[in-house]
Amino acid sequence: MTPELWWMTWTAILAGSLWIPYIVGVNTEPATEGARPEDPFTRPPSQSDMRPWVHRAHRAHLNLLEQFLPMLALVLIAHAAGVNTGVTVWATGLFFAARVLHAVGMITGKAGFPLRPMIFNFGWFCILAMGGAILLSA
């Protein structure tokens, strides 16, 4: 397994697990009049009515999915094309680290403006680096 695929495996595990904080938050939301229906399979209350960290957990998951798909596509293209460079290895490793920092910072609320957007943009630069490495190898 290439280092790029190894890092994408960990990123996939993160993406596949990041729903957990949101679901924990939804299911531990304090019961207020009309906020939690008796039927547990109905839609959860509006996110604006939830505790801030629960809303941020949902957004952290969505933000990861927004960047994971293009990065994964590029890693698979690089793998199929036999592109494996220092840039591709570092881009995938740093991408994973950025996504972990972004998720933790967002859910805890510790990474506010401008840190959180900077981390998100760093992930985007990793995507660009990966794409650039592929295009330059052609």
Score class of each variant (00 low, 15 high):
Val83Leu: 03
Pro37Leu: 12
Ser48Met: 10
Ile77His: 01
Ala60Pro: 11
Pro52Gly: 05
Arg43Phe: 15
Leu5Phe: 14
Ala31Ile: 15
Gly34Lys: 08
Trp53Pro: 06
Trp53Asp: 01
Ser48Cys: 09
Thr88Arg: 01
His79Met: 01
Glu38Ser: 13
Pro40Gly: 02
Phe96His: 00
Trp19Leu: 06
Thr28Ala: 02
Thr32Asn: 09
Val100Glu: 00
Gly105Phe: 07
Met71Ala: 06
Ile23Ser: 02
Pro44Phe: 06
Gly86Gln: 02
Trp53Glu: 03
Ala57Ser: 14
Ala15Asp: 05
Gly34Asn: 10
Asn63Ile: 15
Tyr22Phe: 15
Leu94Arg: 06
Val75Glu: 00
Leu72His: 08
Arg99Thr: 05
Ala60Gly: 11
Asn63Asp: 11
Ala31Thr: 13
Ala97Leu: 15
Ala35His: 12
Asp49Ala: 14
Glu29Gln: 12
Ala81Leu: 10
Arg56Ser: 12
Leu65Ala: 09
Asp39Cys: 09
Asn63Trp: 14
Phe95Met: 04
Asn27Glu: 04
Val75Ser: 00
His102Trp: 08
Leu5Gly: 06
His61Val: 13
Phe68Gln: 02
Phe68Arg: 00
Pro70Ser: 03
Gln47Ser: 12
Arg43Lys: 15
His61Met: 14
Leu69Met: 13
Val104Tyr: 04
Met106Cys: 13
Ile23Asp: 01
Thr32Gly: 10
Thr85Cys: 03
Pro40Lys: 02
Gly105Glu: 02
Arg59Asp: 10
Ser48His: 12
His55Lys: 15
Trp53Met: 04
Val54Phe: 10
Ala81Asn: 02
Ile77Ala: 04
Tyr22Gln: 05
Thr28Ser: 08
Thr32His: 11
Thr11Leu: 07
Ile13Met: 08
Leu18Gly: 03
Pro44Ser: 04
Thr42Pro: 13
Ala57Gly: 11
Ile77Gly: 00
Thr9Pro: 09
Val24Ser: 03
Leu76Pro: 09
Ala57Leu: 12
Gly82Ser: 01
Leu94Tyr: 10
Leu65Pro: 09
Phe68Val: 07
Gln67Pro: 12
Phe96Ala: 00
Ala98Met: 06
Ala78Val: 03
Phe96Arg: 00
Ala12Tyr: 06
Arg59Gly: 11
Val24Asp: 01
Glu29Val: 11
Ala31Val: 15
Trp6Leu: 12
Glu33Asn: 08
Gly16His: 02
Glu33Ile: 14
His102Phe: 14
Glu29Lys: 07
